[in-house]
Amino acid sequence: MFKAKILFVGPNESGKTVLANFLSDTTENVGGEYRPTQGVRILEFESQPEGSSDKSCEVELWDCSGDFKFESCWPAIMKDSSGVVIIFNPDVPSHLKEIEMWHSMFISSQGLQDSQCLLIAHHKPGSGVEDRRLPLASHLSRLLLIHSNLEEEPEDVRQAFCRYLGNVVNAMSESREREEMSIIT
């Protein structure tokens, strides 16, 4: 069974914790007021990655704080990560600019493949924003982008995450095979 370490990163108040709780079936602070994550929160659960030959995958979901006072911890948090999900609120114009920085710090620096990365435009309850095309930088437009709305289509978000997880598991499997072949040859 594969174990995938997935980082949830992005600006403060973008919905990282809400999505992490939803995907892991954690019922912490449901309907409560906003409390920023301090450092990182690690949630562990099993999931069924779509398109993967394995039946299930252990997921370690690292819900990272968007506060720059924890920046010195980020290299340790990134160590051995299998994938990165950048979550942002498309209603906040500064988030569109900030995701470029998150990409640079968490994706480019680790040399992850595009298939190991996911952008989630998280729509907060009552935002009224539709799944419109967002003005992303060219290097970001290569990444899979999903719109999440947990009020209207929560299972679509779960299915999209399972498809993404399948991509991560496949990338991990290919990497493991290459490593094994390099030992043999």
Score class of each variant (00 low, 15 high):
L19R: 00
G10P: 00
P125T: 10
S115D: 13
E153W: 11
P93V: 04
N170G: 04
S138N: 06
G15C: 02
D54P: 02
V169C: 06
V18W: 03
D80W: 06
G10N: 03
S141Q: 08
K79Y: 14
K5H: 10
S115C: 13
I99P: 00
M105E: 05
S104C: 08
A20M: 04
T27S: 11
F2K: 06
T37H: 09
F70D: 06
Q38N: 14
N149L: 02
G31H: 12
P125A: 10
S109C: 09
K16F: 02
I42A: 05
N149V: 01
S52C: 14
R35M: 15
H122M: 07
L61F: 04
L144G: 09
P154L: 06
D156L: 12
P49T: 08
C64H: 07
A171F: 10
S56H: 12
E130V: 08
E174R: 09
L134V: 03
E100F: 02
P154V: 07
H103T: 01
S72E: 14
D80K: 13
I120H: 00
E100N: 02
F68R: 15
E180Q: 14
H103K: 05
S148Q: 01
E46M: 12
E50N: 12
E33W: 14
S104W: 07
L23G: 03
K3T: 13
Q159S: 14
C64E: 07
E28R: 13
P154N: 12
L136S: 04
K55L: 14
E179T: 15
Q113F: 05
S182H: 14
S52Q: 09
E151F: 09
S108K: 10
V92I: 14
S52T: 08
S127F: 00
S52K: 06
R133H: 08
L144P: 06
V59S: 02
I183F: 15
R132V: 10
Q48T: 15
I184E: 13
F45G: 00
V9P: 00
E46F: 12
R132I: 02
G166Q: 02
C64V: 15
M181E: 15
P90A: 03
I120V: 13
R132F: 07
L43M: 15
K5I: 06
G66H: 04
I183P: 09
L140D: 00
V85P: 01
R176S: 10
E152H: 11
E155K: 08
I183Y: 15
V59I: 13
R41I: 11
E100W: 00
P93E: 06
D63A: 05
E98C: 05
Y34T: 12
V84L: 07
C117Y: 01
V59G: 00
T27D: 13
R163Q: 15
L61C: 08
V30R: 11
P36R: 12
Q38D: 15
S81R: 00
N89P: 05
I77A: 05
V9L: 01
N12M: 12
E151L: 13
E46W: 08
S104E: 11
E50I: 09
E174T: 09
E28H: 14
E44Q: 09
K55Q: 11
H139C: 04
